[in-house]
Write a protein that binds this DNA or RNA. Structure first.
Lengths: 211, 211
DNA sequence: AATATTAGAGAGTGTAGCTATCCAGTCAAG
DNA sequence: CTTGACTGGATAGCTACACTCTCTAATATT
């Protein structure tokens, strides 16, 4: 398949495909002549994956490149892949290591230890959580373990579900893609449902009942 | 307080504060002379709120402007405010209304109707959910009502919690700020906890037990 | 009087993600 | 064998965003 067909079948403009090739997100096609190259279904799948991560996951291309690198790294197991995917997602901020931050960070550590969760000390989600809590407190909102617990409970239930859904007997290529897609694309699903649920609950409490 | 003190107390550079003033995110200070203006604690609070929405919520300034407009609109009730906040958050994509999209959109409607959730037909989270599902399916992942249900259950529990936490006896200014902050800033908390839970579950299943 | 600071406005910066234009080489149709 | 559409590859340009810098005239502090 030539680039025009790849473009037609994926819905991605040729210029953008060329850009992804330049950026190393998409492996080059097999050159058959100086101005000719063949692409196959693997390219098509990869392209669809990239677009999914861009459009739904809102990931910057640099993060996608890291994730794809992990997908292509045969030496990485599922757990390692998941770590890489999460690391690529993680917040890009490195906050000031002041006292307020340190204190909250310690509380996060204590909270996770209390839950018995096994997470690495450098997991970006730790920073993400710490930053959110610091900010909430600075705004005068309550943000202690009591507020966190229901969220942690929900998170644990869903994580068990997701990890349980992984079919380890599938071929590696399908497996890793499933893990990445699941990690990145189920987040918007959860967020969307949370917002819808919030609107519903708000309607129940604050809006006049339907006529 | 002069702009330099506002800057010092908020940690936001003077140039950035001026930029926010120009962009209408921050109301102008009270001018005491041609080159002098006084700012007060309201400005400081507003500035902190803006930074929270930027840094933790990752909202574009245009969305923040809309949210602040809703906060300042005395005619808006809590339910309306929440709607505005969610609308400002919503995805910026307007997807191609092709057959695949329409079909999934109908399934989303059916799913929400089945849950008995009262949400407006134009809620941006509907689009967000539809897009995520379309994308998941295009990648060959299962994304039907069975997969959605656990997420919906968790979302409902958390939403009830959040809406229940709102103290309607508080003064309006505190109330609306609480709603906005809760809506926007608890999302990162949930996401972070989901990722941490996922890492933990993945470790339980795939990683060798701790020595 | 000398120095620093201020408000306000415009222009400039850097990053991200494309998009447009060129060019020489290639292919299929007539 | 010519014509015209298309190709890979390289380069430059574009738009949006969130600042950041520079300038000016007016003020304040010492």
């Amino acid at each position: 398949m030539l680039i025009s067909e790849l473009s037609r079948r994926s819905g991605v403009p040729i210029a953008t495909i060329k850009y992804y090739l330049r950026e190393g997100l998409l492996p080059p096609g097999e050159a058959t002549a100086a101005t000719r190259a063949e692409y196959d279904d693997l390219h098509l799948g990869r392209l669809r994956l990239i677009r999914a991560l861009v459009e739904v996951g809102n990931l910057p291309l640099a993060a996608i490149r890291r994730i794809l690198g992990a997908v292509d790294n045969e030496d990485l197991d599922v757990h390692g892949l998941l770590g890489t995917a999460q690391y690529a997602l993680g917040p890009k901020v490195d906050p000031p290591e002041d006292e307020e931050w340190q204190e909250t960070s310690d509380q996060v550590d204590a909270f996770l230890a209390d839950l018995g969760w096994r997470v690495t000390s450098f997991a970006p989600a730790r920073k993400m959580l710490t930053q959110a809590l610091v900010t909430l407190r600075r705004l005068g909102m309550p943000a202690g373990a009591d507020q966190l617990r229901p969220y942690a409970g929900a998170a644990e239930t869903l994580a068990r579900e997701e990890i349980g859904r992984i079919d380890t007997s599938a071929p590696r290529s399908a497996l890793v893609e499933g893990v990445v897609v699941g990690t990145v694309l189920y987040e918007p699903v959860l967020i969307a449902l949370c917002r819808l649920a919030q609107e519903h609950q708000s309607a129940l409490r604050f809006a006049p009942p339907r006529s």
